[in-house]
Simulated assay, not measured.
Amino acid sequence: MKKQLRGKLVLGALLLLGLGGCGSEAGSNGVIVNPPVTGPVPDMSIDACFTMTTSLGEVGLGIDSLHTPQSAANFIGYVDDGFYDGTLIHRVIHNFIIQGGGFTSGMVAKPGGAPISNEARVGFSNLRGTLAMARGRQSDSATSQFFINILDNPQLDYSASSPGYAVFGKVLFGMEVVDQIGIVATTRVGEYSDVPLEEVVIERIAPSECPIVED
């Protein structure tokens, strides 16, 4: 169990996109110190919904534009522009995450737009089935890429030592498709690791009706 937990922490720290950040103060020991989250973590409010059609099936995505407005507007903007159509789920780390939105066939990079602020401080946790923004080492560096958590990954949350990865939505249906993608064989392509051996294509992401939530 300790070995598995240690492995997950290493994956979170090293294999996703790096946990360095800007906009945080470094203490005398060099550890990043973030201001504490104040107030209770809000309930996720799903107010925009989409169907992501992949070469392995459909996945319903719900977005919270109330509590994570920048992440939501960013994602919706890419959807409206058709940016994601024909891109790949280019990174699959078993029992961790699947990641997409930044490469086309052959692992050709598709540059995104301007980076956005990291909204991880809202407090949503990277639980199984949640949708989050991928980013570089800098905290406010997310552009088009996103990931879906296959398992609970609280090590990716905002904390005193990490700016975290901003969760801004969740899977509404098709988690079995996510799980299927999450077990595909992977390989290394040039400088990129954890690339599906057979391409998993995001054929389209399109707006859809949100499910009616009964009081």
Rank of each mutant, 00 (worst) to 15 (best):
F147M: 04
I32F: 13
G174W: 04
K2S: 04
S125Y: 00
L14S: 14
G101W: 02
P163H: 02
I205Y: 07
S141A: 06
I93T: 10
S161L: 01
G86K: 08
A109F: 11
A134P: 09
F96D: 07
L19F: 08
T87Y: 10
G100K: 07
Q4E: 10
P207W: 02
V167A: 06
F168Q: 02
V92P: 10
P196I: 03
M107D: 01
F124H: 06
Y165W: 02
G102Y: 00
G20N: 12
D179I: 04
T38P: 11
V189P: 04
I148M: 07
L56R: 11
I93Q: 08
P69M: 10
D194L: 02
G12A: 15
M175A: 03
T54P: 09
S141R: 07
T143A: 06
N95D: 12
L127G: 03
V79Y: 10
P211C: 11
T54A: 10
G18K: 04
N149K: 01
F147Q: 03
I205W: 07
S159K: 02
G182T: 03
T51P: 13
L19N: 06
S161C: 00
R121P: 04
E119N: 08
R188A: 09
N126S: 03
I76Y: 00
Q180L: 04
M107Q: 03
Q155P: 10
V33W: 15
K2N: 05
P115H: 03
L19G: 09
Q180G: 14
D152L: 14
G190W: 14
E209P: 01
D47L: 12
E214W: 13
G20F: 13
M175C: 03
N74G: 01
N153K: 08
G113A: 09
G20K: 15
S71T: 07
K110M: 11
L9W: 13
M133H: 01
I181K: 05
E176N: 08
F173D: 02
V195S: 00
P36T: 08
V10M: 15
R121T: 08
Q70V: 06
G57A: 15
D80N: 12
F83N: 05
H90T: 13
Q70T: 06
A185V: 12
G12M: 06
A160G: 03
A206H: 08
D80H: 11
I46L: 13
P111T: 06
D80L: 04
R188W: 14
G164P: 05
E209T: 05
D80V: 06
I97K: 05
G182M: 07
V200Q: 04
P154A: 13
N95R: 12
S28T: 11
S65K: 13
D47E: 12
I205R: 01
Q145C: 12
A72N: 03
G20Q: 12
I46D: 14
Q138T: 02
D179K: 05
G7A: 12
N153M: 02
G77A: 00
M133P: 08
F147L: 04
G100P: 05
G129I: 14
C210R: 11
F124P: 08
V59Q: 15
V195C: 01
Y78H: 11
E203N: 02
M1G: 11
H67M: 11
V33T: 14
E191C: 03
S125V: 00
A185N: 06
P69G: 07
V167K: 05
E119V: 00
D47I: 14
F103V: 15
G164Q: 03
G190Y: 09
V177Y: 09
S55H: 13
S141Q: 05
A13E: 15
S28C: 08
I150V: 15
E203I: 02
N95V: 12
